[in-house]
Structures are given as structure tokens and as C-alpha cells.
């Protein structure tokens, strides 16, 4: 495993820890999109079907379990926890996330590395992950007071995607057969979605003012 990949996984992990920290200790999910969290839970459930079939490494298995458990825990908190759910900004989290699941599934059926159940689900999860951040970005635009933890959560999530692209470039040149067009193209699309956010995040950090996204 190269350094970019490890750093990418770690920033992904940090983003989840930051979000859980906010939800668990502050008992608030203000500014967090339940729609995005539900999509991530679905992404991991679809992608990690191989958990029971292929063993890659202990690292791989543990990380998969962590991402599965954390994504479902976050959804549980936002839907069921009696204090946390009251802080959910339902009025502004209006992105119609169900409507992006079906196109991703169709895309997974049409564009995959092999037409098998697991490969279709893998491709589906890649396409869905690429757009899963959209409800969260829309909610951020509509949130007046974006708290630091929410902004950091999205920042680390975006950093993870950027680092994965460096990881692919590195692997492309160091591993002779490493070609995954589906994840590369979807990954680049996903990273581009963060462009605007990064711009305003860095600007707010430089000027030492609270993050605000223009509508």
C-alpha cells in the first residue's frame, strides 16, 4: 500500500470520527444531511459484499467493518436517537436522494467490469458514492451557521477523494495491470464536486472567518 492510499483511508476515517464525535458528544447533527448518510450506508453495504467472500488483508477487513458500522450508526443516530434527531435540519435537507439511486443502479448494470452480481453491485456503489455528497453540499449552501465540525467533516471527506486520485496515479505507474476506469472516472467526478467547497473552505480558513457557501 502506498502513502497516498494510506493517507486517503486515514482522512476518510478522520472524517467519520469527526462526524461521530459531533453527533455523540454534542448530541447534534445540525447541518448534517441524513440523505447523504443514508446513501453512504447503501454504498458501503453494496460494495463490501465481498467481505464474506474474499479476504484481502486484516487492514482491509477491519476498515470495511468500521465504515459499514459507522455509516449505519450515524443513520441510526439521526433517525432514532431521541435528542440527536431533534437537531436534524429536515426542512433544508430536501435533496431527492431516492432519484439518484436508480440511475446509479442502471449505470451499474450497463457499465461494469464483469456482469456478475457482485461486480454490478460494486460498480453501482462506485457511481452512487460519486454523487452521495450532493445532498450534503446542498444542505451546506442552505445552512447559515455551518459549525466547524461539519465543515471539517466535509473537508476530510473531500481530502480522502483527492488522495485516492494520487494513489491511482502512483499505482498506475508502479503496478503493471492496475487499470480501473470505472473507479477512476467516477472518482474524478466525485472529487470535482468538492471543488467549490474547497475553494470557500480554504478562503474562510485563510481569512479566519466562518465558512459560508454562496447559494
Amino acid at each position: 500500500m502506498n502513502l497516498f492510499r494510506l493517507a486517503g483511508d486515514m482522512t476518510h476515517l478522520v472524517s467519520v470520527v469527526v462526524l461521530l464525535l459531533k453527533i455523540h458528544t454534542i448530541k447534534s447533527c445540525a447541518g448534517v444531511s441524513l440523505k447523504t448518510q443514508e446513501l453512504y450506508a447503501l454504498v458501503f453495504a453494496a460494495r463490501y459484499l465481498d467481505l464474506f467472500v474474499h479476504f484481502v488483508s486484516l487492514y482491509n477487513t477491519v476498515m470495511k467493518l468500521v465504515f459499514l458500522a459507522s455509516s449505519f450508526t450515524i443513520v441510526w443516530y439521526m433517525r432514532r436517537h431521541k435528542i440527536v434527531r431533534r437537531t436534524y435540519d429536515k426542512e433544508h435537507d430536501t435533496f431527492r436522494h431516492h432519484f439518484i439511486v436508480l440511475p446509479c443502479l442502471v449505470l451499474g448494470l450497463l457499465l461494469n467490469e464483469k456482469f456478475t452480481f457482485r461486480e454490478v453491485m460494486w460498480a453501482f456503489s462506485i457511481y452512487l458514492e460519486a454523487v452521495a455528497i450532493l445532498p450534503q453540499l446542498v444542505l451546506l449552501q442552505r445552512t447559515r451557521n455551518i459549525d466547524n465540525l461539519t465543515a471539517q467533516y466535509v473537508f476530510f471527506l473531500g481530502a480522502y477523494r483527492v488522495l485516492y486520485i494520487f494513489n491511482w496515479i502512483y499505482r498506475y505507474f508502479t503496478e503493471p495491470h492496475f487499470v480501473h476506469w470505472i473507479s477512476w472516472i467516477a472518482g474524478i467526478v466525485q472529487t470535482l464536486l468538492y471543488g467549490d467547497f474547497f475553494y470557500y473552505y480554504i478562503l474562510s480558513w485563510k481569512n479566519n472567518v466562518k465558512l459560508e457557501l454562496p447559494a
Partner: peptide
Amino acid sequence: DLSQDVKDEL
């Protein structure tokens, strides 16, 4: 076959 390898990324 390029797609035969086990997918090792998260």
C-alpha cells in the same frame, strides 16, 4: 484479464 484481481481498495 485486468478485472480479475480482487479489489483491494475501500
